[in-house]
């Protein structure tokens, strides 16, 4: 069953065609990876899907409804949550508080209830806290709950960011280069974590440069070059695809 469907999407910046008539689907319960050389339009595509940018043409359908004209927060509240290539944790907040922000869409105390400290908010806060602690346990970083998030090691900050996204209980998790800046051991751990998340029933779409990680965990891969899809297949077939090899070896030497 298709959870996310990108249909004939185009986006242009001035003279640059960043995304050109791109279509692909993400099946529910799968891990799908987007790869491509630098400047292929991966980040732009991510920003289009998560609502930071609006496509010039085409539509993006999530869970049966078009979402390309919604704001990022509306899209998030529908169950599509992203992380950032450059980690965007909330500064001056503890790890636990960062995760608790992720519970926002699943709680409802507003300005008035908050100011008046209404009894229902106490219960709600307790539930937010419990659920957030559960997530910290799941990720194995419970001992850092009260540490200021920005003082953690880089690899752990990535895990916190993913935990914050998981706290939203997303249907689809968008990971923007989850292994960037991680060493080999951390990258392996990240791979296992992403598989674990998929096994929990969360669909994952990721952009990643680390080919060994992508080949190991992805169910399907989309290859982008200059904003166009040049291949979409299983990892083993992608590795043998001559067009993909040409793009990677010819242009990037990677």
């Amino acid at each position: 069953m298709t959870l996310l469907s990108v249909r004939e999407v185009s986006k242009r910046f001035g003279g640059l065609q960043a995304i050109d008539d791109l279509s692909f689907d993400v099946a529910q319960g799968s891990i799908k990876a987007l790869i491509g050389p630098n400047g292929a339009g991966k980040t732009t595509l991510f920003n289009l899907i998560s609502g930071s940018l609006e496509p010039d043409r085409g539509e993006i359908v999530f869970g049966g409804a078009a979402v390309h004209d919604l704001s990022p927060d509306r899209i998030a509240s529908r169950g599509m949550v992203r992380t950032f290539q450059h980690i965007r944790l909330f500064p001056k907040m503890t790890v636990l508080e960062n995760i608790m922000v992720g519970r926002h869409v699943h709680s409802r105390a507003g300005f008035l209830a908050g100011m008046l400290n209404l009894p229902f908010t106490w219960k709600e806060e307790r539930r937010i806290r419990e659920k957030s602690l559960e997530i910290l346990d799941l990720l194995g970083i419970a001992e850092h709950a009260r540490t200021e998030a920005s003082s953690l090691a880089y690899g752990q900050q990535r895990v916190v960011e993913i935990g914050r996204a998981l706290a939203c209980e997303p249907k689809l998790l968008l990971l923007d280069e989850p292994a960037a800046g991680l060493n080999m051991r951390e990258t392996n751990d990240m791979g296992r974590l992403i598989e674990k998340i998929r096994d929990m029933g969360v669909t994952v779409l990721l952009v990643e440069h680390d080919m060994s990680l992508v080949m190991k965990i992805s169910d399907e891969i989309v290859v982008l070059s200059y904003g166009q899809k040049i291949a979409e297949d299983r990892p083993l077939s992608i590795q043998k695809n001559p067009e993909v090899i040409r793009v990677y070896l010819g242009d990037d030497g990677c």
């Binding site: 998030a76 992203r82 869409v105």
Partner: peptide, 12 residues
């Protein structure tokens, strides 16, 4: 602290 990240967490 991080407006874009807050929006991505569903905060209007």
């Amino acid at each position: 602290g991080a407006e874009d990240a807050a929006g991505a967490m569903g905060i209007p």
